[in-house]
Amino acid sequence: MVNTVSIGQLTEEANYDRFMERIEAGEKIETEDWMPDEYRMTLIKLISMHGISEIMGALPEKEWVPKAPSLRRKLGIMAKVQDEMGHGQLLLRVAEDLMKPLGKTRENIIRDLLSGDLKFHNVFHMEAKTWGDAGLIGWLVDGAAIITQTNMLDASYGPYARALKRICAEEVFHAQHGEAIIMALAEGTDEQKAMIQDSINRWWEALLMFFGPGDASTTGTSKQDTTIKYKIRTKTNEELRQDFFTKYIPRVLSLGLTLPDETMHFDQDAGMWQYLQPDWSKFKQIIKNNGPKSKERLRLREISYTNNKWVIDALQN
């Protein structure tokens, strides 16, 4: 028995080398191009989670759409939530193209969401209790999203990078919309100021978690090494969290608000913000759909899915 390398395997290796050369050279990979399975699977997971998070993320804000306290605010938040749904749609289209060779469709994405196989972002499992929360989501959650998405604007996968360009442009408006709500509250009555302080206190931990664990030692797994290897992203979770602090901590403090972490400070020597770690075991529970609002929000999507089944059936006839 002669030990030979099959032609197929050789081709596979050659393909892989060629693929890595292309992304190292900053070329964009397109839908029909050859890509390693690991790359495809990583992208499907990342982009379908991103897309479905935009859609699930519309739900906490939707609670405040009718309640927005003026005609102008009503119009603003309606436009914002519509954009989020639009981002969801755009991203699911990108994910669908990647899933096609696997024989999967959007139907699979929705089913995986309902079964718990597809996770959505930790922040959207949280309760949006007050109008202050609606403002804070726009300001800080979208602000955090801008930071993580900007990190992927040059992603090696062309369709994702292009979708992100459009999404980021709109997210900037969202952050401004959120900031305008927050500014009005911060400059308002004592009750309004208390409302926004309360929102920051309740949301702080979720915002820290937004960027994900620093490394696999906290939660057991982390995809960040793979995504960096394939040039889907450049910075680590911790670097992104630090960028968020640098951008937003001065802004929060300048509004006369405080952070619910007395240890938070910038360590000049280390060149880093020092802060209290969130409870990562809680994070693991949240993304397993055991967060404060996970079940209720999934239930909304489930109702939409089952109640409208007759409509989908009618369209397919």
Binding site: I55, P66, V81, M85, Q89, S304, N308, I312
Partner: peptide, 19 residues
């Protein structure tokens, strides 16, 4: 209409209806 947000028959309709 805004009560329907996130509940329409499909995502494309959600975007159109909310517009």
């Amino acid at each position: 209409g805004s009560e329907w947000l996130g509940l329409a028959p499909h995502i494309e309709e959600d975007v159109a209806f909310s517009s």
